[in-house]
Amino acid sequence: MTSEKPHTPSPELDPPFTVRSPPLQSAPFVLCSPHSGRIYPKEFLAQSRLDAKTLRKSEDCFVDELFCGAAELGVPLIAARFPRAYLDVNREPYELDPELFADPLPDYANSQSVRVVGGLGTIARIVADGEEIYRSRLGVDEALARIERLYFPFHAALEALIASTKAQFGYCILIDCHSMPSAQTAQSNGPRPDFVLGDRFGAACDPRLTRFLRDTLATEGYDVQLNRPYAGGYITEHYGRPYRGVQALQMEINRALYLDEARFVATPGFNRIKGDLTRIAAMLFSEVPAMIERRAAAE
């Protein structure tokens, strides 16, 4: 018998995230992987009407590992250990769906956002393909406990990495790392690209940086789109403040390039993608700082 209260986040998620920090940071970049967590707490699985395999449809499987090579070039990488289906840090802290909870939400909750209405708030009601996650409604205390013990520590750590990078280099470039399903949705037309870069249509990142990364990926033979269908989520929008010295750019990778999406195992393409990302990161780390600094000097 356990004394752990139902609304206490699982000890399996202690610590809630990992940070790979180089002994000496060599470039003004921070890498973030908010959706690659793959520790599904036992009590969460018991609450869910879905099996663990179905829950993983929302997971950016192995994205943190794809960017390990880039991090080893001398920049920090923060990655959530908890899954997106359990808590989504790429949302406002209190984007909560009233349909999911047994009691009233606090007044400060945002229950009307497009993401909440779609079932994908801070505590998701559905997985990526629209299946309901929970057997019954949750208590609000449980949601607030997840947010307090997982969400806020993750963002505090991310903010600290951004602040230390700014202190060392004068500015920071945040790359928010994600993957996207290859399967077509009812709203999409034509095949999914290999990569989608989202900079909130230029509001979160210097467009020259976005174009440089797009052109570099294209030179490697990849099909790249900008801002459609993903312009960047909360992390890109919240942290991307070029006028305050923080550029934020979201990168979505087509899972078909590296993953067996039915079995959640890496395909032979994994090593190619990881190698290409590491080589492209090396180019970014060496060339983009001069680009940003020249613009700052001109202004």
Rank of each mutant, 00 (worst) to 15 (best):
L284C: 15
F264Q: 15
I280S: 10
L284G: 13
L257Q: 09
P268Q: 05
R263P: 11
F285Q: 05
M283I: 11
D276A: 12
E261D: 15
L284Q: 13
A266R: 15
L284H: 08
G269Y: 00
A266P: 06
A256R: 12
M283R: 14
T267S: 10
S286K: 11
A262M: 15
I273P: 02
P268R: 09
T267K: 11
A281V: 13
R272H: 10
A282T: 00
A262H: 15
R263L: 15
P289V: 02
A282V: 01
I280T: 10
R279W: 00
A256D: 10
P289T: 03
S286D: 12
G275K: 04
D276P: 08
T278R: 06
M283P: 00
P289N: 05
Y258N: 04
R279Q: 09
K274L: 07
T267I: 12
V265Y: 07
L257R: 10
T267V: 09
I273W: 04
Y258H: 08
F264N: 14
R263M: 15
A281R: 01
T278W: 00
R263F: 14
R279T: 04
F270M: 01
A281E: 05
T267G: 03
R272G: 01
G275E: 08
D260T: 13
P268A: 11
F285M: 12
L259R: 10
M283K: 13
G275Y: 08
V288H: 00
V265W: 06
M283D: 09
P268N: 06
A256G: 06
V288N: 03
L257H: 00
A256V: 06
F264P: 13
F264C: 13
L259Y: 10
M283N: 05
V288Y: 00
E261M: 10
A262R: 15
I273Q: 05
A266Y: 04
G275F: 05
P268I: 10
L259T: 10
R279C: 01
L259S: 11
V288C: 03
K274G: 07
G269V: 00
V265M: 08
L277Y: 00
K274P: 01
I280F: 02
S286E: 12
E287G: 04
G275H: 04
T278I: 01
L257M: 13
E261W: 08
L257W: 02
P268F: 01
